[in-house]
């Protein structure tokens, strides 16, 4: 059984049809890249998986359980965790409070110390408020906040966006480590090379349709296709 199975979902923003019969599967312990141009529907796909948006039709199964349309908190408690593009660190809370908050509803959540061992920088900043952090630190905290819940599946939306190359290298290292630990990750990235270097499989979305499913090697073998759908 797949860990996550998305079966022909259609999602709308009001009247605007954003996802058209999108289907995908995520197997345990794999990293899947979700690629596509701006406005292709990548974020909408992750949001529908997390319950931030409800699909109008179609099914989403997590460990075989239908989760489509459940509120996010219920989906989170089942073991899915979304790290949004905007990071959404709670600016008025300290780093440590952000971590504690994330663990409140999860029985086997991490102690903050475990996060600090993994990200020493966050340990140094533990008493700083979220809004005082740099972009790179916020992204680290956003990922750490997901890990604290020990999720079975992590949905990362553009974790490298807007960050300096050196910091991207750092975060890429973090993601690589998570992959090596056997965590299951769906990563959305404009930085196609970075995403493909992490992933075992990838999907490409175009105008709300899945137009490609395959391995990074197969995709690289078709430069025309890459150019057409990813602009590179």
């Amino acid at each position: 059984m797949s860990l996550l199975e998305v079966d022909a979902i259609n999602t709308y923003y009001g009247e605007a049809h954003a996802l058209f019969d999108v289907s995908m599967r995520i197997e345990p312990h794999e990293v899947v890249a979700l690629l596509g141009r701006n406005g292709a529907g990548k974020t909408t796909t992750l949001k529908t998986m997390m319950g931030v948006m409800a699909p109008k039709s179609g099914a989403i199964l997590f460990n075989g359980l239908p989760i489509g349309g459940l509120p996010p908190y219920k989906i989170a408690r089942l073991g899915l965790q979304f790290v949004p593009e905007e990071r959404r660190i709670i600016g008025g809370l300290t780093v440590e409070e952000n971590l504690v908050l994330a663990g409140l509803s999860e029985a086997k959540s991490w102690e903050p110390q475990r996060v600090y061992d993994m990200f020493p920088r966050l340990g140094e900043r533990r008493r700083s408020r979220g809004r005082e952090l740099s972009g790179g630190e916020q992204q680290m905290l956003a990922i750490a906040r997901a890990l604290v819940r020990e999720p079975q599946l992590i949905l990362l939306d553009e974790p490298f966006e807007g960050l300096a190359p050196l910091i991207v290298q750092d975060l890429l290292g973090v993601c690589r480590r998570l992959a090596e630990e056997g965590r299951t990750i769906v990563i959305v990235e404009q930085n196609v090379e970075a995403a493909l270097s992490l992933a075992q499989r990838c999907y490409i979305l175009n105008n709300g349709h899945v137009v490609y499913e395959g391995t990074p090697a197969e995709l690289r073998g078709d430069p025309d296709f890459m150019h057409r759908h990813l602009g590179i």
Partner: peptide, 19 residues
């Protein structure tokens, strides 16, 4: 803690598993 976080970002608190 939940109230202070919820004042700022309800949706994110929800995503973190809190009703």
């Amino acid at each position: 803690l939940i109230v202070r976080a919820g004042i700022e970002d309800q949706l994110m608190v929800n995503i973190l598993g809190i009703n």
